[in-house]
Design a protein around this nucleic acid. Structure first.
Length: 782
DNA sequence: ACTCCTTGGGTTTTT
DNA sequence: CCCAAGGAGT
């Protein structure tokens, strides 16, 4: 068979096993995408209908690339394969099945900004101390709960989670979660995590639906399996339950998304779920030079947690890596720019084939300045996306509100933009009414006219009603009008264009152009029928009438910055975070900012797991390079408004010196400036400890926790519960107690009443902790 | 109700 | 440093 000739032995084996569960451990640059695409082509050649294949990826970019490559292998049939990100595929399925889980087809998807704004409003309404309850922290917590499939009720009832929150002084997060979730529902909206959560709900509660999709997806392929979270894992597991033709591809060494709930456990669990699963290891690297591969290996072996494998290559030795220490971030950027010029001249490498990788988005600034000065064309990925711009968010909010009148975040954004004489006070009063009526802002206004509410001034009420009438009239057209015709109308009616036209700043001209750009993208969405004649989910033909506004909105809300820019023919140096570089390769790579506290990030010092994740991130960065790899570090960096001093990253020292040139010998010199060390190390350490620790420990416990809970529920029921409740009043100062997780301790203080009653306990191993007695289930020792 | 200015909080990574 | 939210003045 012709296809297989392009593959090595291991790749062929992985492609040839048509049926049954298989797991492919694919090292960096080992031809993973090639194997996956060939596998799909092979399946089709073996007579599997493309309609019965589903292929899941993490980024739209990866999905698109795979689609193209399969297209070149099997032709038009590729269109029938359901291929996309977890979020895009499942949001489409949820659209089909929306009514079953209490949503409408046109539900909104809240992005991070929407969620954060809503969270901070709830924090304020609940009178929680904003010092402890920062929106980011709370949202993180909620997101974590959702990814591990804890509903608000589960969260409230879970002893471990509640205890963790309590320890971190955010004991009321469960209330925020509860309100947050009901507000989302009220707005007919889901956040990113809800898409996966609700997909789980759908599969759990509707057996017929589950069976329908189980039979539909006879062959399931999952890319980047190491980056799946529990919620994603369970969806895949359920869908594959019937045929068990599941093929997952991953590399534990490249797992870099645990902060988002991803867990290597999923790879390890695979063989538990499918005992007859075959493992294939792809260890030959086709991408990089010997030096790069060996350097990468010398770093990754420092991790304890990994599946043993050896990545090797037949490629030439190549140059050694080059590490350079510079005085400041400015100098570092200049050095990089200089090197880029040198490489283009000496090695004839295109700008296109070079990338500058960094740990944090904010590092791009200095680099951009230097590149601009030296006339080097570049493109920055990430940062503020097109859809993140204010004027675009405003315009999109109008579209969202038309598509879904209940979308309160969109509503609040535009109710008084452009100004309609509806001020903060009126909106505050409207929100109070919303609280009473328990519906969306839009629906609240609709009810005002009937009930003649008097809290809001008549002038404001009139303005609000006019606004709603305008939106409602536009909404009526949604099902019958294509996205562009309607979108154009909405934007023109909104008054945004005239408002922007009145401004005289130079930047406002850009804003107008951006809005025009948005309209253009809607236009091409509607008109571009070459690519999308077939709906790969329903298998039906798509006509222009199906390209309605809500479909467009759903598509863009799941797009990331990396998916937007697409100017293939331009010759640019690429600037991006290491995270967004995953899956890509470049002839020449610069990894900048190799400093302790920056990379590894100081946020990661709290636990060994986190440092290991940073190391995997470094491994990913190194293995992006084919030929040249440069690393640099700045002693002095302008950051968050002031200058910080750093030492060279520990990761530099971890690279075997055989494979790297250190220009200045800096790394051998151990500095001895104790007073200086203290000055910049001290505050950062305490910062990272107070903030990160509680979250980390929950993460570690998520799985053991589930097992523990299950065991507990099986073994004990009423007895132990009663005992612990009775225990609330029995706990007194001076008692010796035992806690299932913290061990033995002595009660040193009791405060609060009933459900809020807390005890301070001095534990033998862990020191003093304060526990909510309702949850702590302490046992009294004699 | 609107505008401008100050203040303060949060800054790792992202579908 | 960069934003969003709060306050003061119109």
């Amino acid at each position: 068979m012709v296809l297989l000739e392009d593959l090595n032995k291991e790749q062929q084996d992985a492609v040839r096993q048509k049926d049954g569960p298989i797991i492919i451990i694919a090292g960096a640059g080992s031809g993973k995408t090639r194997t996956l695409t060939y596998r799909i082509a092979y399946l089709i050649e073996q007579g599997v209908s493309p309609y019965n294949i589903m292929s899941l990826t993490f980024t739209n970019k990866a999905a698109k690339e795979m689609q193209e490559r399969i297209y070149s292998l099997v032709g038009y049939k590729a269109k029938y394969i359901l291929m996309g990100t977890f979020h895009s595929i499942f949001s489409r399925i949820l659209r089909q099945e929306a009514e079953k889980i209490g949503y409408t087809k046109n539900y909104s998807i809240y992005d991070d900004t929407d969620s954060k704004r809503l969270i901070s409003e709830i924090i304020k309404n609940l009178n929680l101390d904003p010092k402890n309850y920062s929106k980011g922290r709370v949202l993180n917590r909620i997101s974590f709960a959702k990814c591990s499939l804890y509903s608000p009720q589960d969260y409230k009832d879970n002893e471990y989670i509640r205890q963790e929150d309590f320890q971190a002084n955010i004991g009321e997060v469960y209330r925020v979660y509860q309100v947050y979730q009901s507000r989302l529902k009220q707005a007919m909206a889901m956040d990113f995590d809800d898409i996966l959560f609700n997909m789980n709900v759908l599969l759990r509660d509707f057996v017929d639906v589950k069976e329908k999709y189980q039979k539909r997806f006879q062959y399931i392929l999952v890319d980047e399996y190491q980056d799946t979270n529990y919620s994603q894992y369970l969806i895949v597991k359920k869908l594959a339950e019937y045929y068990k033709n599941i093929c997952v591809v991953g590399d534990d060494a490249q797992s870099i998304y645990s902060f988002r709930g991803a867990t290597i456990q999923n790879i390890l669990n695979f063989r538990k779920d499918y005992p007859n699963a075959n493992i294939y290891k792809l260890e030959q690297n086709y991408r990089s030079t010997q030096n790069i591969i060996k350097a990468a290996n010398s770093v990754i072996v420092k991790n304890e947690l990994q599946i043993p494998k050896i990545i090797w290559t037949n490629n030439e030795d190549g140059d050694k890596l080059l590490f350079k220490t510079l005085l400041s971030d400015r100098e570092e950027a200049d050095w990089v720019a200089e090197k880029i010029k040198e490489i283009t001249k000496k090695d004839k490498v295109d700008f296109n084939d070079m990338a500058i990788l960094y740990r944090t988005n904010s590092q791009s600034r200095a680099l951009e300045d230097s590149l601009r000065l030296k006339n080097i064309p570049y493109i920055v990925y990430g940062g503020i996306s097109f859809y993140g711009r204010k004027e675009i968010k405003d315009a999109v909010a109008y579209l969202r509100l038309v598509a879904n009148n209940d979308d309160d975040e969109a509503f609040e954004r535009v109710i008084n933009y452009p100004a309609r004489g509806i001020g903060k006070t009126s909106i505050d009063r409207l929100k109070i009414l919303r609280g009473e009526k328990r519906c969306s802002l839009f629906a609240t206004i609709k009810q005002i006219s009937e009930n003649k509410e008097k809290t809001i001034t008549t002038h404001a009420v009139k303005a609000m009603q006019e606004f709603c009438d305008m939106i409602e009239a536009l909404s009526l057209e949604m099902k019958t009008t294509d996205a562009f015709t309607l979108g154009d109308k909405v934007i023109k009616r909104s008054g945004i264009m005239t408002d922007l036209a009145l401004m005289k700043d130079v930047e406002d001209k850009d804003k107008l152009e951006n809005i025009q750009e948005l309209l253009n993208s809607i236009k091409s969405f509607v008109e571009n029928d070459e690519e999308n004649i077939i709906d790969s989910l329903t298998g039906e033909e798509i006509s222009i009438k199906d390209k309605t506004l809500d479909v467009f909105l759903q598509q863009i809300s799941l797009m990331s910055t990396a998916d937007e820019k697409d100017e293939e023919n331009s010759d640019n140096v690429k600037l991006m975070t290491i995270h967004s570089a995953k899956g890509l390769e470049f002839n020449t790579v610069f990894i900048v900012g190799m400093e302790e506290n920056l990379f590894p990030s100081c946020m990661s010092f709290a636990s060994r797991d986190d440092i290991e994740e940073e190391r995997r991130l470094f491994y990913v960065a190194i293995t992006r390079a084919k030929q040249h790899l440069f690393l640099s570090c700045a002693k002095m960096r302008y950051q968050y408004g002031n200058t910080t001093f750093s030492e060279t990253s520990r990761f530099i020292k971890e690279i075997d010196s055989e494979f790297i040139d250190c220009n200045d010998g800096d790394r051998q010199i151990k500095k001895r400036l104790p007073f200086n060390d203290d000055a910049y190390n001290e505050p950062k350490k305490s910062f990272s400890l107070t903030k990160k620790k509680p979250l980390t420990s929950l993460r570690d416990n998520v799985f053991t926790e589930k097992i523990l809970l299950r065991k507990k529920q099986q073994q004990t029921d009423v007895d132990e519960k009663d005992l612990s409740v009775a225990g609330i009043d029995q706990i007194k100062e001076g008692m010796n107690v035992y806690h299932s997780k913290f061990g033995n301790g002595v009660v040193v203080g009791v405060e609060g009443e009933r459900d809020n009653k807390k005890a301070r306990v001095d534990f033998e191993t862990l020191g003093e902790k304060t526990l909510i007695l309702k949850f702590a289930k302490l046992k009294i020792k004699k």
